[in-house]
């Protein structure tokens, strides 16, 4: 059929940079699809949205989306995002990055942004490995999984990302796989509209590196696995949602609570101490 109808994602992409570098069967393109639909559904002016990414396969999202975007240094998208939000509180600041970038090298930034409830939304694409640099073991790689730096199997306990975000104080925590596209889109809309630090983990297949080294098949095989072995438990105890190699995947919206954001807490504290002498800083939050 002739392509006389334009793909709904296309107006949000820098088409001069297409085709993208993601491998056949990679899940990051699905995350872009879901995000564009979520942006449409949330009804936010795209001019007031800013995308921040770090380094890695997922970090390319900032380069491909035709929105205001930062492609920052390795592990530092959250400090950039916090700074941008403080300087321009009217913007919606969204961080897209991989787990190696956000949790390993940028792990300290992640936990402190969650602790301070900085008003940024973090979408962490978890593919269990450092895919762009050739497959070194990542901070979420399950025990016994093979990577170039663990040829006999990983023996380190992996991070349970929803538990990490929950225990450090994120106000919204969800996990979906790239198979759960409608649920992921809905979660993205909720996260975009919620004030505070929101964390959405997206489990994505990496057919070239992770799946191949662990003999888990191609991208399609991974999607079939997500369909078969994932269980939706909304409000599950995040302590119980850790992942194992070839084990079940518990997905859902785990945490949704309210807490004052970084700028709100600052305003409250200074107003209570200084009274009328303090002029509140604009927070950009409509409650």
């Amino acid at each position: 059929m002739k392509n006389q109808h334009i793909n709904p994602v296309e107006p949000y992409l820098r088409m001069d940079r297409m085709p993208h570098i993601w491998c056949p069967g990679c899940g990051i393109g699905i995350v872009v699809n879901c995000f564009v639909r979520a942006l449409n559904q949330s009804g936010i002016d795209p001019d007031l949205v800013s995308i921040i990414s770090g380094i890695g396969c997922t970090g390319r999202i900032a380069g491909y989306l035709k929105l205001d975007s930062f492609h920052t240094t390795h592990g530092r998208p959250i400090p950039f995002a916090t700074g941008l939000k403080v300087a321009r509180p009217e913007l919606k600041v969204l961080v897209f990055s991989g787990e190696g970038d956000l949790v390993s090298i940028g792990g300290n930034h992640l936990i402190h942004a969650a602790r301070r409830n900085s008003d940024i939304k973090v979408f962490c694409v978890n593919n269990f490995t450092y895919a762009m640099t050739g497959g070194q073991v990542g901070p979420t790689a399950p025990i016994h999984s093979i990577a170039t730096t663990t040829p006999y199997g990983s023996y380190d306990r992996p991070f349970n990302l929803p538990f990490l975000a929950d225990s450090t104080g994120a106000v919204y925590v969800a996990r979906w796989t790239t198979y759960h596209v409608r649920q992921l889109t809905r979660s993205m809309v909720e996260a975009i509209n919620k004030p505070g630090f929101c964390f959405v983990e997206i489990i994505a297949p990496c057919p070239t590196i992770y799946q191949r080294r662990n003999r888990l098949g191609d991208g399609l095989e991974a999607m079939r696995y997500y369909k078969r072995y994932s269980r939706v438990i909304n409000g599950a105890n995040t302590r119980m949602v850790g992942l194992e190699l070839k084990g079940p995947i518990i997905v859902g919206k785990f945490i949704d609570r309210d807490r004052s954001t970084l700028l709100e807490a600052m305003n409250e504290e200074f107003s209570s101490k200084l009274g009328a002498r303090y002029q509140p800083y604009p927070t950009g939050v409509v409650r």
């Binding site: 059929m1 709904p8 699809n33």
Partner: peptide, 26 residues
């Protein structure tokens, strides 16, 4: 390739799943 366009409901699930932005339905 399209086998049976008659049964397509236009749910656009293919568009959501396509990582290369190559297909969509209305």
């Amino acid at each position: 390739v399209i086998v049976d366009l008659e049964v397509c409901t236009g749910c656009d699930l293919c568009g959501l799943y396509c990582p290369d932005f190559a297909i969509h339905a209305v």
